[in-house]
């Protein structure tokens, strides 16, 4: 066995996994704090990437385009709270899920109406070339994505653990009724968490967009994040990371080492097969919250 090749493949898988983890984190944020499984996260990724790339192509500097897009995502968060979450407060989860399903079409449609449907190339200025390590192929771009993703995770963890907003997020995640009664302003918390999820969508959109081109299929990355969530647990950010890494690793290794025997194409479905097995043996995922209760 060629260990250099194996290591290169494994690293590529892990790095790809971090990209899945990014999408999953957007889900976890919203699910954790408001109990809504936000199907529109993928549409938000598309919307953010398309907005950014169109502004950038129109001649705006990178940071200006980034900030304007971020502002747009925050406005989107506020609108979602005011027009979807607030009228549907206390409705069953399936109602809210259906609402986000509808929202995903509205957001996708709006993005394409505003910016058109053609594919945009996105260049973040990082070359997709291998690092000069003998025998092991590691792309600079993948490494860049990994460091951005890691930074994002650290920032989010600090936000949740050590800030007042983070405490409000955790309290609202735990018991909305008690949070309301305690005087926490749920509308503000929800708008804030959607804005944070919008920021995550923007980062995800830029990295994925640079890899695959900014196009409609970006919104389908959500489908890849479902197995990640099943593995890691729907309400755990570390779970999303570990789940993402495992899925990325499994996909790449399976494609390279098992693929040839079954004619390839394994990476299309292996993640879902793994998720299915996980659902049977550990439905809360690796890091999903079990109830904290005295026996």
């Amino acid at each position: 066995m060629d260990w250099g090749f194996f290591a290169g493949t494994a690293i590529a898988g892990l790095l790809a996994g971090l990209m899945y983890a990014l999408v999953a984190i957007g889900f976890v944020l919203i699910y954790k704090t408001s109990g809504v499984l936000n199907f529109a996260q993928g549409a938000m990724v598309l919307f953010a990437a398309l907005t950014f790339v169109s502004l950038h192509e129109a001649g705006l500097a990178f940071w200006l385009a980034f900030l304007i897009t971020l502002a747009a995502m925050i406005v989107l968060g506020i609108l979602v709270e005011a027009f979807i979450l607030r009228p549907l407060v206390n409705q069953p989860p399936i109602t809210l899920f259906m609402a986000t399903l509808g929202l995903s079409y509205v957001v996708e449609g709006t993005a394409q109406l505003m910016w058109g449907t053609q594919v945009h190339a996105l260049d973040l200025g990082i070359k997709d070339t291998p690092l000069p390590i003998p025998d092991i192929l590691v792309s600079r771009f993948d490494l860049f994505c990994a460091s951005v993703a890691s930074t994002l995770v650290v920032v989010l963890t600090l936000l949740f653990r050590y800030t007042r907003l983070g405490l409000a997020f955790r309290a609202a995640a735990e018991d909305q009724y008690a949070a309301l009664n305690t005087g926490l302003r749920l509308p503000v918390i929800w708008a804030a968490v959607w804005a944070v999820a919008g920021f995550v969508a923007l980062v995800t959109g830029l990295l994925w967009g640079a890899r695959t081109g900014v196009q409609f299929s970006l919104s389908l990355v959500v489908l890849k994040s479902f197995p990640v969530l099943v593995l890691g647990g729907f309400d755990s950010i570390p779970g999303a990371i570990v789940g993402g890494l495992l899925i990325g690793l499994t996909e790449t290794l399976a494609e390279v080492y098992i693929g040839p025997y079954v004619g390839g194409g394994i990476d299309e479905w292996i993640a879902y097969a793994v998720a299915l097995v996980f659902l049977l043996i550990r439905p809360t995922g690796l890091f999903g919250q079990r109830s904290v209760e005295r026996a």
């Binding site: 955790r170 018991d175 008690a178 904290v292």
Partner: peptide, 19 residues
């Protein structure tokens, strides 16, 4: 209706946050 996963002190702090 305590926040079960939050520490006792974090529970109290949410009260300060509410005010």
């Amino acid at each position: 209706h305590c926040f079960r996963h939050l520490s006792a002190e974090d529970n109290l702090l949410t009260g300060a946050l509410g005010r």
